[in-house]
């Protein structure tokens, strides 16, 4: 199995373990979009959310620091960044979750809502990339 597959599997296991520990320790679903909105909405009542996000940055930094792998490039045009970011925020708030909340926790709970949401955002992700890369748009 190529190394990238093993890294994906191990990285996924770290994410799953982190989500499991957050539930065991704090009783919270590790859904990043939900935690983000909570932190933005009432930061003073949710210090735990701010600590969780500080951890997210530290962990990503720590990986590149320890492994010596360079940070990935991010070469996307500004209008696309703004539009994409806005739609991701709108969609995850409206649809009650993202890849972590629905994909990792919700499917783990065998929630029908999360299974449907995950299939939907994957499908629309596939369609969007197809139109972008092979439809001659954007």
């Amino acid at each position: 199995m190529p190394e990238s597959f093993i890294n994906a599997l191990l990285g996924g296991a770290c994410i799953g373990l982190a989500a499991t520990l957050l539930m065991i320790l704090l009783g919270r679903i590790a859904g990043v979009s939900g935690i983000l909105f909570t932190a933005l909405k009432s930061p003073l009542d949710n210090f735990w959310a701010i600590f969780f996000f500080s951890g997210l940055l530290l962990g990503a930094f720590g990986y590149h620091f320890i492994s010596g792998n360079p940070v990935p490039t991010f070469d996307v045009s500004l209008p696309l960044i703004i539009a994409g970011g806005f739609i991701v925020g709108l969609g995850t708030k409206m649809g009650s979750g993202c890849t972590s909340g629905h994909g990792i926790c919700g499917i783990g709970r065998l929630s029908v809502r999360s299974i449907i949401a995950t299939c939907t955002f994957m499908l629309f992700g596939f369609i969007t990339v197809f139109v972008r890369l092979h439809g001659g748009l954007l």
Binding site: V76, L80, I81, A83, G84, G85, F86, I87, V88, G89, L90, G91, T92, K93, M94, G95, S96, C98, T99, H102, I116, A117, T118, T120, F121, M122, L123, F124, G125, F126, I127, T128, V129, R132, L138
Partner: peptide, 13 residues
């Protein structure tokens, strides 16, 4: 609808 929007934004960036 929310999941569809999210998928579109995910695919854009």
């Amino acid at each position: 609808g929310g999941a569809a929007f999210f998928g579109i934004g995910w695919g854009l960036v």
